[in-house]
Amino acid sequence: MGRKIDIPLARFGIGDVVRHKIFDFRGVIFDVDPEFANSDEWYEAIPEALRPSKGQPFYHLLAENAESSYIAYVSQQNLVRDESEEPIDHPAVGAMFEALEDGSYRLRDQLRH
């Protein structure tokens, strides 16, 4: 029998609108990794004092701040649910999701598994 792998439970799901705890941006989740799955270079670029543990869920976001929209990769410890009910202003949102409803986006039917 194989060893049981302990994966922390993801607090957020695809379509949830979240906000970063430290930096001023928010976004909608479009993918979840059960633990860190990016490059060592990306991880090492984070200042050591802010570097999150790799053993937690990481989220791919269609993100926005006051200046631009972009893709972000963020640890669970650095995210909180965004309660503003404001839509995310990112050009890819409409292709991936239906309209914002009750604080979350619904993945378009053709993208569901």
Rank of each mutant, 00 (worst) to 15 (best):
L62P: 01
E67A: 09
F36K: 10
Q77K: 14
S53P: 05
A49H: 10
D102S: 12
I5Q: 12
P47G: 14
Q77S: 15
D31S: 13
F12G: 04
F36R: 08
P47R: 13
E83D: 13
G103V: 03
Q110M: 09
L62W: 04
K21N: 15
A10P: 03
A99K: 13
I5H: 11
D82V: 00
D33L: 02
V80C: 10
D16V: 02
V80K: 15
D31K: 12
G55K: 05
M1H: 12
I71E: 14
G103Q: 07
D33K: 02
F23D: 15
V93T: 05
R11L: 13
G103A: 04
L111V: 08
A72P: 02
G94C: 06
H20S: 04
I22E: 15
G27M: 03
N78W: 08
D16W: 06
P87I: 01
V80A: 13
A99N: 11
A92M: 11
E98R: 11
N65T: 04
G94H: 04
L61M: 09
A66Q: 14
S104V: 12
D102Q: 14
E101S: 15
G15Q: 06
V28Q: 01
R108D: 07
L9H: 07
A37Y: 08
S84H: 00
F23T: 10
E83S: 11
R106M: 04
P52D: 11
E98Y: 12
A45F: 08
S53D: 13
E35I: 02
L111D: 08
F58P: 00
G94N: 07
I88D: 03
G94T: 10
I29T: 01
N65D: 15
D102C: 12
R19S: 07
I71S: 09
G2S: 15
S53A: 14
N78Q: 10
A92E: 07
D102P: 09
V28N: 00
P91H: 09
R81Q: 14
Q77R: 14
S39V: 06
L79Y: 08
L61A: 05
E86A: 09
I7A: 09
H60V: 10
L61W: 02
A99F: 09
A63W: 00
G103I: 01
E41T: 03
E85M: 15
R26A: 00
D6R: 15
D40I: 04
D33W: 00
D102L: 07
K54I: 13
E98W: 09
I46A: 02
D82G: 01
G55H: 06
S39F: 07
R19A: 06
L62S: 03
W42P: 01
K21D: 14
V17F: 00
D109M: 11
Y43H: 10
D89R: 08
F25E: 08
I5T: 13
N65K: 09
A92N: 12
P52F: 06
